[in-house]
Simulated scan of single mutants.
Amino acid sequence: MDETYWDPELFEVREPATQTIPFVYNSPHSGRRYNRAFLESSRLDALGIRRSEDHFVDELFSAAPALGAPLLLAHFPRAYVDVNREPYELDPRMFVDAVPSYANSNSVRVAGGLGTIPRIVAENVEIYQRRFPVAEALSRIETIYKPYHACLRKLIARTHARFGFGVLIDCHSMPGNIRVAGTGVRPDFIVGDRYGTSASADLSNAAIALLEDLGFHAVRNKPYAGGFITEHYGRPVKGLHALQIEVNRALYVDETSLAKRPDFAALAGSLSVFMEGMAEFVAGYTGDSALAAE
């Protein structure tokens, strides 16, 4: 991996000694390094601004390198720039000057305050004290968003070249109060495959079965089917599969204090077993297999 692609203070790749399985693990929302200028521009305190983090998800999936897969993880916070969006989903209400003509300002995510440069953290809480120059947003995209995706693309391409196919697992967390619409059921995990377009059904079903065998309640696609990363990198017909895994935060963190719960280590251990199981599931496949072609 060419380290000139990024500043290691912003994100890093934790590599296995040798990549032995066709997986790339990605934790784009667990970053928790907040620079002083950003904090000073915010109306939120040091705890409030962390509400949109996928708290400690990088640690929950930290066994990936030992199991033979690279783990890409963000150090920059999601509230600063969100790499699980299109590159230019920009909200004109945030800036003192006009956004570029190529910006997508009409997406549902922008309308909800959760564009590439988020306007809010969770619960519709505004981040900024005042509007700021759009050049600042574009700088974040150039110096963080684009290098992050260049790195992720390189990891996926390397994996595909080595094994003939590849599986991206995009790792996230969700609020503890999430319920499956119409049922009232609170899932422990949601496996998203963009309704079958980003990964094979066999792969999604295997992920759900493995989680349920570990004693968790897992559902598929509702209410989270996968974001930009899952949609953008999942190309099953080309042997590239992408799954989004959402972990219920109530399983492992106090959502008020953001302190880890006593069961944190046990959950991380279960996810290590899950990752091993996923690797075993695809062990018999090649680039010409039914999985890669589905």
Rank of each mutant, 00 (worst) to 15 (best):
L67D: 13
R78M: 04
A98G: 02
I21R: 15
A63E: 08
H75T: 02
Y5E: 05
A265F: 09
Y80G: 01
I117R: 04
A199I: 11
P22K: 03
V134P: 10
E126W: 13
L44N: 12
S204W: 01
G269N: 09
T116Y: 01
G284H: 14
N104P: 07
A218Q: 10
M174F: 03
N26H: 15
I21N: 02
S105F: 02
N205P: 00
Y224W: 05
G239H: 06
F56A: 07
G48H: 11
K154Q: 13
H55Y: 00
G112I: 00
Q129K: 15
I117T: 02
Y252D: 00
R130D: 15
Y80D: 01
L155R: 05
G192W: 13
L243W: 05
S42R: 11
R235P: 07
L10W: 07
G176W: 03
E126S: 11
D58Y: 01
D202T: 11
N26K: 06
F23C: 06
E212D: 07
F95W: 08
F189N: 12
F61T: 10
A150H: 09
I245M: 10
G196P: 11
H160I: 01
F61S: 11
P87Y: 06
V253A: 02
L211N: 03
R158E: 09
F132R: 06
N205L: 08
E126Q: 11
T197E: 11
E276R: 14
V191D: 05
R162C: 00
F163C: 02
A137R: 07
L271R: 08
G287D: 09
D54I: 04
F38W: 04
F76V: 02
N177Q: 11
N205K: 09
T256V: 12
S200N: 06
A259C: 04
S41H: 06
F132T: 02
A98W: 00
I190W: 10
G192Y: 14
L71V: 07
A111L: 07
I156R: 11
S41C: 09
L114M: 14
T4V: 01
E280T: 09
Y88I: 06
S289M: 07
L211E: 00
V110Q: 07
E255I: 05
V96M: 08
H160T: 08
P8W: 07
A265T: 12
A79W: 03
E246N: 02
P70F: 15
A137Q: 05
D2N: 15
G196M: 12
T159Q: 09
A181S: 12
H241T: 12
S101E: 13
G239W: 04
S198P: 12
A268Q: 07
Y145H: 10
A293Q: 14
Y128S: 09
R220H: 14
S107K: 10
G164T: 08
R220M: 11
R220G: 08
